[in-house]
């Protein structure tokens, strides 16, 4: 039990560190390439407006 808890907590910290490191070290040209790819997508395809809601709850989606 204790070992499983330590593994779970360590995994969480490792994931947090990896995601943070990825966010901090991604080069600017990658952002530009992503922006090019994302420019064709609509707000509702890309945005998330609340936890777990990967699709937008903005009114242009929800109001329909």
């Amino acid at each position: 039990m204790k070992r499983a808890l330590i593994v779970a907590t360590s995994l969480c910290l490792l994931l947090a560190g990896s995601l943070f490191a990825f966010a901090r070290t991604a080069p600017g040209e990658s952002y530009a390439a992503f922006a090019d790819a994302a420019s064709g997508a609509t707000c509702c395809e890309c945005a998330s407006c609340g936890c777990l809601g990967a699709k937008c709850s903005c009114l242009e989606c929800g109001g329909k």
Binding site: S48, C49, G50, C51, L52, G53, K55, C56, S57, C61, G62, G63, K64
Partner: peptide
């Protein structure tokens, strides 16, 4: 509206 119910995020 039904759209507001079926679309959107979650609050913990």
């Amino acid at each position: 509206t039904w759209g507001l119910v079926t679309h959107g995020g979650l609050v913990f």
